[in-house]
Amino acid sequence: MIRPFEHQSAGSLREALDAVADGAVPYAGGTELLASMKLGLLAPHRLVDLKRVPELAGIRLDGDQLIIGSGTRHAAAESDLELRHRLPMLAHVLAHIGNPRVRWQGTLGGNLCFAEPRSDLAPALIALDASLTLQSRNTDRFIKAATFVTDAFTVDRHDDELLTEISVDTSGIVFQRYERIQLMERPTVGVALVGRSNGWRLCVGAVGYVPTWHDAHNLADFDAAEVIAALEPIDDAAGSAEYKRHLVGVLVRRLVAAAGSPR
């Protein structure tokens, strides 16, 4: 039984920003928040529903920037033709989040802000060097996905802010692929590799509390041993830390080999 709470449905971004400034906890799909409330882990006094905020929904292209509204559901984003064409790695990740019900309920913004460590979305967006827009009543803030997740279930969002947009520069991408091992409902290990005309980024997710990433000018500069050494994997039901280190090594070598082979 969940603790009683006040509930407000915001009809515009202005209303939503007023509500969070006033102490309401934002929610959209509720796949993580309601589950946590049922488990008694969270007991917000007031919720503001973002599902009917038109400014937060939808995907648009601005030049080569693909801009995804934070309230876009995973299934809607995955089926967006521009996203599939320009960011097939992200479409692949979205198509495998949770199960079809989670994908039709959950939103990209909710997934990022909840910051469940065993997630594929954050490492994929970090590898793509996505930028995030955080808005409050008074200010707009732009930060990189790489610095957004600061700890397990913790992100760089103030209580009076909403994550409104996720923006990815789709120009100059020469390689993008995501490899993962998943044994249960959530990934055990996920590794993303993105190559651009000016360099490469590799990001490892799910094994520890926060994703870790590495930049390299040349593909050959990636060293699986270095990537493994930078991890802080945790033992859990999905596998031991040692097992996760081993899998990361396999996936990193596999991705680097795929990126280096003629296409």
């Binding site: 796949t31 309601l34 049922k38 199960n99 019900r101 039709w104 309920q105």
Partner: peptide, 20 residues
């Protein structure tokens, strides 16, 4: 939301009625 026994359609899309 893991087992699917509670699946229903809302506006044509599947959701888990247990956590909705």
């Amino acid at each position: 939301q893991v087992c699917g026994a509670c699946a229903v359609l809302v506006d044509g899309h599947p959701v888990s009625a247990c956590t909705y």
